[in-house]
Design a protein around this nucleic acid. Sequence first.
DNA 1: TCGCCCGCGGGGAGCGCTCTCTCCTGTGCG
DNA 2: CGCACAGGAGAGAGCGCTCCCCGCGGGCGA
Lengths: 352, 352
Amino acid sequence: MSQPTTDPRPTLEAVAARAGVSRATVSRVVNGSTGVRKSLAERVRRAVEELGYVPNQAARSLVTRRHDAIAVVVAEPETRIFADPFFGLQLRGISKELAAHDSQLVLLLTEGPDDYARVGRYLAGGHVDGALAFSLHLDDALPGIVRATGVPTVFGGRPYWSDTRRDVPYVDCDNRGGARDAVRHLVALGRTRIAHITGPLDQTSAVDRLDGYREVLAGADPRLIEECDFTSAGGERAMRDLLDRCPDLDGVFAANDLSAAGALRVLRERGLRVPEDVAVVGFDDMLHVAEQTDPPLTTVRQDIEGMGRLMARLLLHGRDRGQPPGTVVREAPGAEPAPVVTQTTLVRRASA
Amino acid sequence: MSQPTTDPRPTLEAVAARAGVSRATVSRVVNGSTGVRKSLAERVRRAVEELGYVPNQAARSLVTRRHDAIAVVVAEPETRIFADPFFGLQLRGISKELAAHDSQLVLLLTEGPDDYARVGRYLAGGHVDGALAFSLHLDDALPGIVRATGVPTVFGGRPYWSDTRRDVPYVDCDNRGGARDAVRHLVALGRTRIAHITGPLDQTSAVDRLDGYREVLAGADPRLIEECDFTSAGGERAMRDLLDRCPDLDGVFAANDLSAAGALRVLRERGLRVPEDVAVVGFDDMLHVAEQTDPPLTTVRQDIEGMGRLMARLLLHGRDRGQPPGTVVREAPGAEPAPVVTQTTLVRRASA
DNA sequence: TCGCCCGCGGGGAGCGCTCTCTCCTGTGCG
DNA sequence: CGCACAGGAGAGAGCGCTCCCCGCGGGCGA
């Protein structure tokens, strides 16, 4: 590892020699052959094939200043990458999109100030063409650090400062709209005492979902809102507190599926039937969770992998928009960096 | 993105000029200052600081043929990266270790033959110093492809062909030993009809755990073994089948926590008490699962993050071994590439 | 005192590629 | 039939860095 790989890899020169042309011609053929006679191009291609030539990315980067690589920066991975499949799915979407553009994915996981400095240095070092950044918490320094490097960046999830600075390209699902749909569904079911188990309110997704709830249920009893943390254990606790406080509640909108699952357990434990006595709606349509709760969870689906793809696309294409039809709800009109908010869909199962 | 980043980054030359020395001297200072007078080195360091100089990795790689980057190749991510935190934790360990060595992590997710070819090309292109490969299934072509590129590689989990070819560096936990411990624990509890819910038997981890079970319970009733798939839904199904077949069973060793959780649900559903009527042991000590089942799951813990670190370390250090004391159970004696098998520990909770 | 050796610092080549500039060839038109 | 022009191919200059090799100077032994 410390010593260089023994490296008899053929160079452009070698290919050129074999094809009987100049380096320049080979180069032209290798990167999109414009203005090279067909016969020659073919000969070059054959030489490339025979020699198993692969361009040296380092040499290429040196002159082009492009790297065909983007960084994915994740703040505090313990929070999300491990607890739920959310980040993995997003990563998958990103990976697919990058692969389609022959770009590499450099993963930078951070878990503290030291790491932040390291990431800042790396990004500032100009080793990548852009960055996709994930940060969940309001007070997280990472977004600022990433922005400070000047590297083109797209954020995953609405950053909390997107309110004050509008020049922030991000991709997020329509948390607020999804929450509205969820609550409206409960209302349509005739529920009148609808509680909300929130997510951690230092995350915009949780805040936006709460806003959506409030929007539909303006003037709702504040005791029906219980702050929670997106975990199933938290959901259990929250549900208990809510039931103790408001035994008459007949609907619950949980800010994510995990806390909904916790809530369901407590409801059953208390002998309440779902959905007859209490209807429950979650959020995320999380893999391996929403379908397997008892009863299966009605929830708000977001296309997580699609959001990942979108982030990558936004970063790679910069200006030219190529979102899959139907997913885009809103775009900042004309503004340079365009936040993209993707639609959610209510998935009806048995719990509401 | 398509156009190069505007790049007024200072070069070695600039630093040299500012410090009043030659490029070579600056280079020496930048990469571990050997043989440079202290005063000069200090002056250089100041110049670096003032100019905010960051070495151009591309230029450096071009001449050194090192990249300070390793690839993490994951076959069929849908299988694992999303369903459970296993891979995320391992990634975290890898990331930490790489960060400590100033190496970058290039993530290559694959999900089909096209991707395999792409990955093969990338690795063969010599863009990274080494690779860490994860592949689960017996018939997966990825390991072969990775090996064929000649890039130094460490595998995550014992590859199935490690039996026939011993020159395979991999890191895995002691699946067999852990399984033995689990089953012996059940035996020590006085259980005599101990069932086993296996994992998918095209994965070595599942096979090894089954072997461990068999090793302790030689000649066990084969009807006590039910093949399953590492999912909780599968665990439910398996448990039902087992109970239908052998209503007198009094112990269950599930090949992972997820299937154990499913089994627990079915046991409760059937009115069987855990651990009084049936004692249950899982495997993995999976985050957010083992502690939250009802009752909390006795299980076999593996240090997943540690295994990630170990993989990275093995790859980076090559020959010089620096494992944390205590974790290493076995190493191929003297052989070049050393498989590392990490110890597991039985975590006793309420289920057995 | 002189010479030699050693240690520090500098000069310069060149890693493999792209890209501009120039040259050459072939074609079409006057 | 000659000339101009266009388009295709080659030569060459670096991109920023490392590292080899050499030169210079100081210290020490003869």
